[in-house]
Amino acid sequence: MQAAEAATPIPSGTRIGHVHLKVADLERALGFYCGVLGFQLMQRLGDQAAFISAGGYHHHIGLNTWESKGGSPPPPGSTGLYHTAILYPTRAALADALHRVLQAGIALDGASDHGVSEALYLRDPDDNGVELYRDRPEAEWPRSADGALSMFTRRLDLDDLLRTRVA
């Protein structure tokens, strides 16, 4: 099957509303997403599912054990979700997220400055990839001499990021 170009592009206002993750242990997942990252629990269905949010939205992330209770992560080399990206509104908010992650003893897989954004990469307790990031204002995006977007990947200075944290 060949990739097909859409006859009509998707509207520019379209966005991802939420992601739903299969987890092995709901309490453990809630400990990470609510206890470490600070999401709010909006609704819970016993020990089978929970819906969490930033800022009171009905849910940004659904967590469930319907097909995965006690299960293990997919093996390397299999298809599936690469990561869930969580967009923070400011650099200070991203710095606070980094502080929370480090305080919880969670290792980072990486930290990158992409020119247009700054990103932290880690794993949740079920080995799902998680990206915590903030976008730079478009006026700060790197551009070549002809004005074309010039993204890159460089190591993010974590100490500099943490200095922007509002305690």
Rank of each mutant, 00 (worst) to 15 (best):
M1D: 01
M1N: 03
Q2Y: 01
Q2K: 08
A4I: 14
A4G: 06
A4Q: 05
E5K: 12
E5M: 14
A6D: 02
A7F: 11
T8Q: 12
P9S: 11
P9R: 12
I10Y: 01
P11T: 12
S12L: 09
G13F: 00
G17S: 12
G17W: 00
H18E: 08
V19H: 02
V19A: 13
H20K: 09
V23R: 04
D25S: 02
L26S: 04
L26N: 06
E27Q: 09
E27N: 11
E27F: 00
A29V: 11
A29E: 04
A29P: 12
L30D: 05
L30C: 05
L30Q: 02
G31C: 04
F32S: 06
Y33Q: 08
Y33K: 05
Y33T: 12
G35E: 04
G35N: 01
G35H: 01
G35I: 03
G35A: 03
V36Q: 02
V36R: 01
V36L: 03
L37W: 01
L37I: 10
G38C: 11
F39L: 15
F39K: 03
L41H: 04
L41C: 04
L41S: 03
L41W: 04
L41N: 06
Q43P: 00
L45F: 15
G46C: 03
Q48I: 02
A49Q: 07
A49F: 09
A49R: 11
I52Q: 07
S53M: 12
S53K: 07
G56E: 04
Y57G: 05
Y57P: 12
H59T: 10
H59P: 09
H60R: 06
I61S: 07
I61A: 10
L63Y: 08
L63G: 08
T65F: 02
W66V: 10
W66C: 07
E67H: 11
E67R: 14
S68A: 03
S68M: 01
G71L: 02
G71T: 14
G71N: 03
P73H: 04
P73G: 06
P73A: 13
P73N: 02
P74Y: 00
P75I: 14
P76C: 02
T79L: 04
G80Q: 06
L81C: 09
L81Y: 04
H83V: 12
H83K: 08
T84V: 15
T84E: 05
A85G: 14
A85T: 14
A85W: 13
A85Y: 13
I86F: 08
I86W: 07
I86R: 08
L87E: 14
P89Q: 07
P89T: 14
R91D: 00
R91Q: 05
A92C: 05
A92H: 07
A93F: 02
L94D: 07
A95M: 08
A97K: 06
A97Q: 10
L98K: 07
L98D: 07
H99Q: 12
H99W: 02
R100E: 02
R100S: 10
V101C: 05
V101H: 03
L102T: 15
Q103H: 08
A104I: 15
A104R: 13
A104W: 03
G105L: 08
I106H: 05
I106D: 00
A107E: 13
A107I: 06
L108R: 15
D109E: 14
G110N: 11
A111Q: 06
S112V: 00
D113G: 06
H114G: 11
G115V: 12
V116M: 09
A119G: 15
A119W: 14
